Amino acid sequence: MKIKRRIKYYLLRLFRIKASPQQVAFSLTLGFIPSWIPTFGIGPILSVAITKVLRGNIIAAVIGGVIGTPIWPLLFFLNYKMGSLFFIKQINLDEVDDIEYVETLNETVGSIQSGSVLFLAGSVINIIVFSLIMYGGLYILLKKYRGHILQKLQNISC
């Protein structure tokens, strides 16, 4: 019950932001970007910093960072998969649980010959592709359906 209430709260804040659909979509997308890379707990701070530099909406950026925080294992898995599509060195990952996060960090810092190239290349590709998709989808959603969604959210009881 508490989770449902918190989700409703953040959605209401997002759809009530008094900014243009472009600015909200841009800021939320910027806030989500640090979730693709290992930030070791400073992802939301990076989200805010990036958004301030690019003059976006801070609330939307924080919401984007909050969305990405619980799904980072899936995002890291997608980074490896995407990187392995573009490099000869194929890795054998079938599940999110197959990724050794400490080992990934050590390889990223210590060796270019390791799976770190796959991870880094995959993260760059994913950031670009998914940011464009996320921005476009959010822009359309906010431009066309903002009022309707806000009205529906207000009618949901928690």
Rank of each mutant, 00 (worst) to 15 (best):
I3F: 14
Y101C: 00
K2N: 10
A49T: 10
K4F: 15
R13N: 14
P21K: 15
D97Q: 13
K2F: 11
T29W: 10
G83I: 04
P70N: 11
R55V: 00
D98C: 01
W72G: 00
V53E: 02
Q90K: 15
L93V: 01
K52N: 07
V48G: 03
L85R: 12
G31E: 09
Q90N: 13
L14W: 08
G65T: 03
G41K: 07
F87H: 07
T108D: 01
I50T: 04
K89G: 08
R6K: 14
V109E: 11
F40V: 14
A19V: 03
R5P: 03
I45M: 15
A61Y: 05
L75R: 10
A49E: 11
F86E: 00
N92E: 09
L11Q: 12
I58D: 07
I50K: 00
I33D: 01
P44Y: 06
T51D: 12
I99M: 04
I42R: 12
T29D: 08
W36Q: 07
Q90V: 08
S27R: 05
V53A: 10
Q22T: 12
F76Y: 13
F86H: 02
A60L: 07
I3P: 02
T104R: 10
K8F: 06
A61G: 06
T69Q: 11
Y101D: 00
K18V: 07
Y80V: 01
I33L: 11
N79D: 10
P73V: 02
I7C: 13
A61H: 02
Y9H: 13
R13S: 11
L75W: 09
R55H: 11
Q23A: 08
L74S: 09
V96I: 14
V96C: 06
L75P: 10
V96E: 03
Y9A: 04
A60S: 09
F40R: 06
G31Q: 04
N92S: 09
T39G: 09
V66F: 14
P70R: 11
Y9T: 07
L46I: 15
L54P: 01
V62L: 15
N106K: 15
R16F: 04
I99W: 03
F76K: 00
I45F: 15
I42P: 11
N106I: 07
Y10M: 09
L85E: 05
G43W: 09
F86L: 13
R16A: 09
V24A: 07
I7T: 13
A19R: 14
L85F: 11
S47A: 15
D94W: 02
V62S: 02
F76V: 02
W36G: 01
F77M: 03
F77E: 00
S35E: 07
K4C: 12
F76T: 00
S84Y: 03
E95P: 00
F40D: 07
P38A: 08
Y10R: 06
K81I: 04
T29K: 10
I58W: 05
V102H: 08
S20N: 11
T29M: 15
I99Q: 02
F32Q: 12
G41W: 08
Y10K: 05
T29C: 11
Q22I: 04
R16K: 14
D94H: 07
R13F: 03
V62C: 06
G83D: 03
V66Q: 05
Y101Q: 02
E103L: 13
Y80N: 01
Q90G: 12
K8M: 10
S35T: 04
M82C: 09
K81H: 00
F76C: 02
R13L: 14
A25I: 05
